[in-house]
Design a protein around this nucleic acid. Structure first.
Lengths: 350, 350
DNA sequence: ATGAAAGCGCTAACAA
DNA sequence: TTGTTAGCGCTTTCAT
């Protein structure tokens, strides 16, 4: 008869009752352990954890969702960044969710939509979502943030511009990496360096531009207006900006595009114009997407730990959700700095 | 007091009870309408549907999940195809899931992993997943399919090789599109056309190769072994194959790579070798990924309706899940044919 | 520090 | 054709 447990374990899954029985406690105690509550004796806790491990027990998210006063679905909100960036984000977020027993809900958005706030509101209510992860440019939609707060929905932001605003976020040192990249180009002998700024609604665009300015000033190179073009992080805007920069009488010898997609656009135009890369023009991007290796010649670019950022942002969100309003303390915002320049030969300088 | 409904609608969500009350029926009847059960009078059904619409009621997936004998989470299984392909898949699957009140669970896999079957089994049991969507190359892992059937888990396959095997699938006419593409090249005057085959574990690789053979034979062109290289659908294998093909004494004047990533690899090598594209060499890919436009020169390629395929496959799966074992009838497998050749100038021939 | 009981929103079996 | 009842697995009171 004891074999029954095995049978049950096979077809249905292990429930909290079986864990409780195994550990010789009530289900409530198991629940306490599960939810990291405090009123559990260390010894009891260990017994329960052992039982959980032996039975390979995993709490049923639907049941928790239904019974608890917060849900176990967290949503990743995104508006159409590049596919590879998004896949990295997803991968990181998924890992954290899996590890913590949450479900990840994907929510594609249109960040300029007038209904954005309404859509998110209904999503959040329908799925009882206690928190959302905001990726750029949604990280900085003030109206959205306000509304989330009204709804009592936690959020964790990735690469925001306004870091002063409350709540956890994860960012990298775009400015510093950009500075390093420009310095690298300068050390290679470049003097006239053009830049294609990123989308004004994305924080990264700002920081990367600032890094450029800082480096140029630091090396006493003139920052000429004609060397600065506006882009929007997509291939087409990169091409448009490149046409502009490469039509200058005194052409830049290097162009730093705010991301790889735009850099690919520069490369495309340079080829169209018969400009030799890297002979007559160096092209640098940002993000280290697969594209940067696939174009010819390969781009100098900067690697961002996107999946790690998402993993961290997700963990912060989950922490917040768990201690929903327990203390007013926000977790320390984390700043990743592990950016790495990969130059077109694959070498990492310094 | 009647305003209360509004209040409630705002904070918690509408439940089946409110719908029942509004429609003047029992909750069970509402449930019947929700689940497309048959024993409901047309007039009653309409009343219920009206109430649902007015209240903007959406059933709580967690509750259904918990109470029902099948879950409302369906999983998308994938092993690392290109990010853009995967994003398209996701988008399509998400849309169908949203429309039908299912949750989509993302499950990255390692298709060669020895534990694959075990991992899927535990995923399926833990999340009470009644069905999975299989994308290539998982669509053709016979062992996995067997196991899913043992577990009573439905599946819907995307672009499978073995279409004889039971269950719904969605595919495109890779063979025909490939044939058309090669014909296009031949009509452009090419005679020595090299091919880089796709990954042998992916159905698409087979069909595309067959289309090539058929076209070559049809035009009485010799199919020489040295013109056939093996690739694996990734950029690096495309480069390797290109090195091989372009080292031939009698070089091909055109290379058809099984997908865009490999085609980008060909382009890269051609540039390295100083071969002018398209002057001395034409390069064609398959999939119409963003990459095909970003490289220089743009690739001739074939557009696949990936999101539509996923949408359809997901709908088929959901149908199957709903009438779980009701009839032995499988939904008719659907064959999409809307492939479009986009040549490197952006023109669509014919 | 632990347990007993109630109930989350829904579906399933059984009544009517 | 419709309604009633009893749970699904868990968290939440509230009691001990």
């Amino acid at each position: 008869m004891e074999g029954c447990e095995q049978m049950l374990g096979g077809s249905g899954s292990v429930t909290i009752h079986q864990v409780a029985e195994r550990a010789g406690v009530s289900i409530k105690t198991v629940s306490r352990v599960l939810n990291h509550e405090i009123n559990v004796r260390a010894e009891t806790k260990e017994r329960v954890q052992a039982a959980i491990a032996e039975l390979k027990y995993r709490p049923n998210p639907s049941a928790r969702n239904l019974a608890g006063n917060h849900g176990y679905n967290i949503a990743l909100l995104y508006d159409n960044p590049s596919p590879s960036y998004l896949m990295d984000l997803q991968r990181g977020a998924l890992e954290s969710c899996r590890a913590e027993g949450f479900h990840l809900i994907l929510q594609p958005c249109t960040y300029l939509s007038r209904d954005l706030a309404r859509e998110i509101a209904s999503l959040v209510e329908e799925s009882r979502i206690p928190g959302v992860i905001l990726s750029p440019p949604l990280s900085d939609m003030a109206g959205l943030l306000d509304q989330l707060e009204e709804l009592g929905v936690q959020h964790s932001r990735i690469a925001p511009i306004d870091v002063a605003r409350g709540g956890p976020y994860v960012a990298v040192d775009d400015r510093g990496a950009s500075y390093d990249l420009i310095r690298h180009l300068i050390e290679l002998g470049h003097r006239r360096i053009g830049i294609i700024k990123g989308h004004p609604d994305h924080g990264a665009g700002h920081w990367r531009y600032e890094g450029y300015l800082k480096a140029m000033h630091h090396y006493n190179l003139p920052v000429e207006d004609e060397l600065i073009a506006q882009g929007y992080f997509d291939f087409d805007s990169g091409m448009a900006a490149a046409r502009q920069l490469l039509a200058l009488k005194d052409r830049p010898t290097a162009i730093f595009a705010g991301n790889d997609d735009m850099a690919a656009g520069v490369l495309h135009i340079a080829h169209d114009l018969g400009i030799d890369v890297p002979g007559q023009l160096s092209v640098a991007g940002f993000d280290d997407t697969p594209l940067s290796r696939h174009v010819w010649p390969s781009l100098t670019t900067v690697r961002q730990p996107v999946a790690d950022m998402a993993r961290l942002a997700t963990m912060q969100l989950i922490d917040l959700v768990r201690k929903r309003g327990q203390s007013g303390e926000h977790p320390a915002p984390s700043m990743f700095c592990s950016l790495v320049i990969r130059d077109s030969t694959g070498k990492v300088p310094e």
